[in-house]
Amino acid sequence: MPPLPYLLRLRLARYARTSLCSNSCLYNALPPVRTLFATPPSLAKQLPPRRVVLDSEIEENFLKGSGPGGQKINKTSSAVQLKHLPTGIVVKCQETRSRTQNRKLARQILGERIEELELGEQSRTHIKAREKSKKKSSADKKKRRKYRALEEDRKAMEGEVDDNEPIEEGESQIMKGEHIGEGKIHAPG
C-alpha cells in the first residue's frame, strides 16, 4: 500500500483526536445544569433516564453570521444551533451569555426532543408536563390572589397612578418565557 499523503494522515490523526477529546466527554460527562433542570426526587423516580445524544450524531453551528470576527466586532450573541442528523431535529439555544453553557443546554433540549419523538407519552418532558400542570393550577390561584393584594397595597401607598407603563402580568411572563415566535426553543421547565 502506498503511504498516505501527509495531509491526509494529519487529518486522520486529528479526527481521532477530536472525537476522543473535544466533544463527547466534555458534554456528556458533565452533570446536568442544576439550576434549570433540578427535578424533585419523587418525580425523578418515575422518569426514564435522560437521553444522551452522541456528538457524532450532531451538526453544531454557532450562528455567527458572515463577516469578520475576532477583534473587529464584539458580539453579544452566543447562540448555538444543533441539528440531529438521524432525525433532522433542530434546536437553537441563546438562553445565557455563555456559549459553553448554551452548548450544554442545547444538548439537553435536543435530548428531550429526540426522546419525545421516540417515547411519546412516556418521555420525561411529557411526564414532567403532566406533573407541572397539576401543580400549576393550584399555584396560579395562590399567585393571582397575592398579586391582587400587592397591587392594592402599592396603589394605596403611592396614592396615584405611575406615569411609567406598569408591566402587566402577561408581558412580564412573555419576557421570562423568552424567544417569542420561536417554537423550537423554550426555556426548559
Partner: peptide
C-alpha cells in the same frame, strides 16, 4: 412586547437578539 425594546432593536438590528439583551 416591551417599551424598552425598540432602542435595543435599533442597536442589535434583530428582535430576538434585543430580547436577549434586555433579559440580561
Amino acid at each position: 412586547v416591551d417599551h424598552l425594546l425598540p432602542p435595543l432593536v435599533k442597536q442589535c438590528r434583530d428582535v430576538h437578539a434585543a430580547q436577549n439583551e434586555l433579559r440580561w
